[in-house]
Write a protein that binds this DNA or RNA. Structure first.
Lengths: 146, 146
DNA sequence: TATTGTTATACTCTATAACTATA
DNA sequence: TATAGTTATAGAGTATAACAATA
């Protein structure tokens, strides 16, 4: 099987492989690559607004609602009122949420290992760095467009 | 805007940016990143079965049907009987198809330029090479699973 | 007036199964 | 029995618009 030259196609194929592998790996903890990314964001802060979550994983705020709903229903996260700005809700990860996150992170890491099996550590860092620059550039363009 | 560390998320964000930019750029020729990839495959051969097209752009054969239908309706490609194996249809690009493809390719290339604006030529080649290895690995895994 | 979270809706993608005609 | 193309359908993901509460 010959890989395409078309870099746009390559990006979407690699992405699809990553998502599929992550979703398969996350089965045991009942998460998806989406809800995992959200939980990861929550694990890195204590209390974020849904708007900030939407910016962080580049999703429309309306799509965050259902994701937070699902985590909250399972007791993995909570919505708390934000006294400083009563329009906002501060989303926080719970202790059970943290436990699930640590297990999930191990699962995701081994799925990434699988997808990037042909790349060594240095190459993975190179890939990450290049992708970060692409994403940063795209994110900046979006901000300017507002 | 801070870019994530999570390499799976980075891949899907970069991919989404690429697809969105390509779709926007391809508006004038009424193609999508999908139908463009298909047309590109057709431009590179003279006569391919739909199964081969499905393998090339990693899509289910059932999804190829609608894409080829659309190209055929516009006179950009044709389905021809394959005398050697009458189950197969040989899909060929037409002359008008080739004209549209050349115009589309220029549009896609400038959209890629936009998305990868922060990477120089060498870095783009590095990115392409790394992604090809990821995709090749994933494709090989799928083949072994058959 | 603008922003946060929410609901609703329509549209595209994706995955799957089943059918036909050929091999 | 297996493969190529096709049809149908259900589910996931995406995009958009509108609304209430609050700033």
């Amino acid at each position: 099987m010959k890989a395409p030259e078309n870099i746009g196609l390559l990006l979407s194929l690699a992405s699809a492989q990553g998502v599929a592998a992550a979703n398969a790996a996350l089965g045991p903890v009942d998460l998806t690559s989406r809800s995992y990314s959200l939980l990861e964001q929550l694990a890195g802060t204590d209390g974020v607004s849904q708007r900030e979550l939407a910016d962080a994983i580049r999703l429309d705020p309306s799509q965050i609602v259902a994701l937070v709903d699902a985590l909250e229903r399972r007791g993995l996260a909570e919505r708390r009122p934000n006294p400083a700005d009563r329009r906002q809700k501060s989303v926080v990860i719970t202790d059970p949420g943290r436990t699930v996150f640590h297990r999930a992170r191990a699962l995701v890491e081994s799925s990434v290992d699988e997808v990037l099996a042909d790349l060594d550590g240095l190459e993975r860092e190179t890939l990450r760095g290049l992708l970060q620059r692409v994403v940063r550039h795209g994110g900046a363009r979006l901000e300017n467009a507002r």
